[in-house]
């Protein structure tokens, strides 16, 4: 299992302190403890809902061990793209798609691909935290049990590890069997993150995961993302440019269903190649 260092959020200057975001993690050293690189590649993806052409010829690649932010005005298809990665989009009425998405060199649209295996590789953090209707403990073990971990002692270890990883352990260790719905909304979101991590994913998909949270909880989640990227590829859909500025390593800008520009954060933010990107960053439209 992965080891995480946990920063105490209660220290006095925490709320003001963004220093952790700057340079305390050197990407080049962070090959992580995984031998295999996680790999997500989209080629020529077109997606339609009824008559609407939602995603147009999307091709992109998600780098491992980085935070990739997908930005763009609302309605540009960024959330749809994210939900296509783990095919949660399948249940939508009138959905059609072509092209392919490769996860670790497996085409997820292939009929032979078992979608639950793909989904296991992708932890999802949705806009509003959505704990399962059970206790804190059961929330985390739910996924593990599905994937065959039955040993009670092992499960208890996982719960402790993951709750520590998201900095929730100290807050809830005395009431692990209380309903998850009793937690505050910020705690719930961290619980959801821990729940996702417990099934040992390779990617973390976050769909505006901080937009429903208060500023303190938001920062907490952002901090976690920065810590977690040494082990995961994190894909973050966001409509707050400032959040992207703070934590993105890699940026994908989408507009009207197309990928306009993609590249390292520095390049996109400081020196965009496309006129549209520049305008968006300047706040000409949102």
């Amino acid at each position: 299992m992965k080891e995480f260092q946990y920063k105490n959020p209660t220290r006095a200057t925490w709320a003001e302190d963004y220093s952790f975001l700057n340079n305390d993690l050197d990407n080049s050293k962070l090959e992580g403890d995984k031998n295999k690189k996680s790999n997500l590649k989209v080629t020529d993806l077109n997606l339609y809902i009824h008559q609407h052409h939602i995603l147009k010829n999307v091709s992109l690649e998600i780098p491992d061990n980085k935070i990739t932010c997908i930005i763009g005005p609302s309605g540009c298809g960024k959330s749809t793209l994210l939900k296509t990665f783990n095919r949660l989009i399948d249940d939508t009425e009138g959905i059609r798609y072509d092209g392919s998405i490769w996860v670790d060199d497996v085409d997820i649209f292939d009929k032979k691909t078992e979608i639950t295996d793909i989904r296991k590789k992708m932890g999802l953090l949705s806009q509003r935290p959505c704990p399962l209707p059970m206790s804190i403990y059961d929330n985390i073990t739910f996924g593990c049990k599905l994937h065959g971990i039955r040993n009670k002692k092992r499960l208890a270890e996982i719960v402790e590890e993951q709750l520590k990883a998201v900095g929730l352990w100290e807050e809830v260790k005395d009431r692990l069997h209380a309903p998850a719905s009793k937690l505050s909304i910020g705690q719930q979101q961290r619980l959801c993150l821990a729940r996702g991590l417990a099934v040992e994913p390779e990617f973390i998909l976050a769909d505006e995961a901080t937009s429903a949270l208060d500023p303190i909880s938001s920062k907490h989640i952002e901090e976690l993302f920065v810590e977690l990227k040494k082990d995961y590829a994190i894909i973050l859909v966001t409509h707050t440019l400032r959040q992207a500025l703070r934590i993105a390593d890699h940026v994908i800008f989408m507009y009207l269903g197309k990928v306009i520009e993609a590249g390292p954060a520095d390049e996109i933010f400081n020196n965009p190649k496309e006129e549209l990107t520049r305008k968006y960053l300047e706040g000409a439209f949102s």
Partner: peptide, 20 residues
């Protein structure tokens, strides 16, 4: 819908989502 999605994204099949 989020609740079902949460369960699916942990790799649960529809049948396994019955508990949720």
């Amino acid at each position: 819908k989020d609740l079902l999605d949460a369960s699916y994204s942990l790799g649960a099949t529809k049948l396994e989502t019955i508990k949720v």
